[in-house]
């Protein structure tokens, strides 16, 4: 590829592929552009329109404690709780799986991989009746634990793969210094796989933040509901008349995960230190 970069045929095909890419990007952009423009348009419809006048009225209309701030706080509690539990459990579980050749490794990893395959939405009906029977319906903590468990198979799988790519040679120095396995994990492995862990954390947080179905089924009280459910309840009734507010709320609710995602991808780009650490 690099050898033929200057050839004319190459640059023509590059032009064509750029055009194709931009056309695809335009298709992907249309629904997103609607969200943005409708949120700034007090007379927004379902269709993409340039607002006659740009206004923040939709935002000030939805920015009330009960409609936006509480639900967002509830979303944060649920997602952060879920992500912290998941990452802790995943790192701990990944260490023996990645570092020791034990008899349980293979069955456990098969089990985990199998768990990633179970469709969680399929489980919601039995989970609901299980929560009813255990008296855990409407409990935010139990719902966070449940969400952590559902993201755990994926998180263990990802964390183990990230950990496998941290060379053991770096840990050996710590062992020689007499560090225990847990200490080596904390002081050597975890810092080296920070980018990987950030990916796992963000992956889980974003999934939890965006999850609608689980809280929709398992939480009952309005004041405990995360933003995903309140927006559905509110705009399920008024959506057809208040597209602008719907879009404004949607943006407010989406911004945290978008910001988080950007932060992490920028951070990851700069700090993939593992390869350098072993070569240098």
């Amino acid at each position: 590829m690099t050898t033929s970069i200057a050839s004319p045929r190459r640059s023509v095909s590059r032009g064509v592929s750029s055009a194709v890419l931009l056309a695809i990007a335009a298709c992907f952009l249309l629904p997103l552009a609607w969200l943005l423009l409708a949120s700034l348009d007090t007379k927004a419809t379902a269709s993409l329109n340039l607002p006659a006048e740009f206004s923040l009225a939709n935002f000030s209309a939805v920015l009330t404690p009960e409609q936006t701030l509480w639900p967002l706080w509830n979303s944060f509690l649920l997602s952060a709780g879920c992500a912290v539990i998941t990452v802790l459990a995943a790192v701990l579980a990944a260490y023996p799986l990645s570092r020791y050749q034990a008899r349980y490794n293979k069955p456990f990893l098969y089990g985990v991989l199998f768990g990633t395959g179970l469709p969680i939405t399929a489980m919601m009906v039995p989970v609901y009746s299980m929560f009813v029977r255990l008296g855990q319906l409407d409990s935010v903590a139990t719902v966070a634990l449940f969400m952590a468990a559902t993201s755990l198979p994926m998180a263990i799988w990802m964390t183990k793969n990230f950990m496998d790519s941290v060379p053991v040679s770096l840990e050996e120095a710590a062992w020689i210094d007499g560090a225990s396995a847990m200490r080596a994990l904390r002081t050597v492995v975890v810092p080296l796989m920070r980018p990987g862990l950030a990916v796992v954390f963000i992956f889980v947080f974003i999934q939890a933040w965006g999850n609608f179905f689980i809280p929709f089924i398992l939480l009952l009280s309005n004041h405990k509901q995360p933003a995903a459910v309140t927006v559905f309840n509110f705009f399920g009734q008024y959506g057809s008349v208040a597209y602008g507010q719907l879009a404004a709320f949607s943006l407010l609710y989406s911004i945290p995960v978008i910001v988080l995602y950007i932060l992490v991808t920028k951070g990851i780009g700069g700090s993939f230190a593992t390869a350098g650490a072993i070569k240098g």
Binding site: P31, L32, W34, L35, I206, W209, G210, N211, F212, A227, A228, V231, F232, F235, G239, L246, A247, S250, Y253, S254, V257, I258, Y261
Partner: peptide, 11 residues
């Protein structure tokens, strides 16, 4: 990256 419900509204 958008939450699923937002993506659903947009679609």
């Amino acid at each position: 990256v958008l939450p699923e419900i937002v993506a659903a509204f947009a679609c």
